[in-house]
Design a protein around this nucleic acid. Structure first.
Lengths: 123, 123
DNA sequence: CGTCTATGTTGACAGATGTCGATATCGAGT
DNA sequence: ACTCGATATCGACATCTGTCAACATAGACG
C-alpha cells in the first residue's frame, strides 16, 4: 500500500521544496518525495548555511535580523545568497522591518523534519 | 556580541560524518560541527541517494543486497558511486558475503539525526 | 583455469554550486 | 533631494558533483 499521507499545510515557498518528509525508514521513497527531501537536505548541506540556520533557530522567537547573524566569515553578498537559498527551500521566511530584514524559521520545518525520522519500533 | 559556546557531549567523533549533531535549535553551531553536519546532509542531498538509503533502511534488519536496491533508474556505476558516498559519509556500512555486497544503515545514524532535531519546548 | 555474474574503479564531461567584487535597491535621517 | 547604512542582485570565476562507458576486481562454479 502506498503512501496515503495527509499532506500537512506546509509552507509554499516560491517554487521550492518544503512539503515533504515521509519517514525515512518506513518504505521506499517515491521519486517526487525523494526530490523534495533532497532539495531540503541540499539547502542544509553547506556549513555556512547550517550556521546561519542555527543562528536564526536559536534566536528568541526563532527569528533574527540579518545584521545579527551575518558574521560567519564570508562576504555580505555570500551571506545574502545563502539566506536566499534557505528561503527558497522553504526553511526560512524573510520580512523587512524598516531598515533591517528579519529571517525566521518556517513554522512547519521542524515538524516536517521530525516526521521524516519517525523512528521505528525496534529501537 | 560574544557567544558562549557550551560544547555538548558530542558523540564520539570518528573520521566520517555520522557521529555528530547537537540540536539544530539549541544554539549556534561551531564551525567543526557545522562541517560534520553539512557532510551528512550533503550525503542525503541527492534524490538517488535518498532512495537508495530509504530502500536499505526499509529492508528487514535495515540492510539490503545491492542487487535488491540497484534499480533506481541510473547506471550501475552510478549506483556504486552513490553507495560509496553514503558509506563515506558514515550513513551506511557495507559487507561482502560471497557474491553479493550488503549495505546496512549505520547504527548510530538515526539516533544522531533525532538528537539533531531535539524539538525545544515552545514547539 | 576459465567463465560468468556482481560490484567497484577510472576517466571524461556537462552542469550545478560557493565565492567574491561591483553595483543596485530600499528605508531612515538629515 | 541627498546621503548613508543594510540587503539584494549581477557577472565572473574556480571548484565540486552526477553521470556514463569502459575497464578492473572478486567470488562462485564448473
Amino acid at each position: 500500500m502506498s503512501k496515503k499521507r495527509v499532506e500537512l499545510p506546509v509552507l509554499a515557498a516560491e517554487n521550492a521544496a518544503a512539503p515533504c518528509c515521509p519517514p525515512l525508514t518506513a518504505g521506499e521513497l517515491s521519486v517526487p518525495d525523494s526530490e523534495r527531501m533532497a532539495a531540503m537536505f541540499k539547502a542544509l548541506a553547506d556549513p555556512v548555511r547550517l550556521r546561519l540556520f542555527s543562528r536564526v533557530a536559536s534566536h528568541p522567537g526563532r527569528e533574527a535580523c540579518v545584521c545579527d547573524i551575518a558574521d560567519v566569515g564570508v562576504s555580505q553578498p555570500t551571506v545574502s545568497h545563502h539566506l536566499k537559498k534557505l528561503r527558497e527551500a522553504g526553511l526560512l521566511t524573510s520580512e523587512r522591518r524598516g531598515t533591517w530584514v528579519y529571517y525566521a524559521v518556517a513554522p512547519s520545518v521542524l515538524a516536517a523534519m521530525s516526521a521524516m525520522l519517525d523512528l521505528p519500533a525496534d529501537r
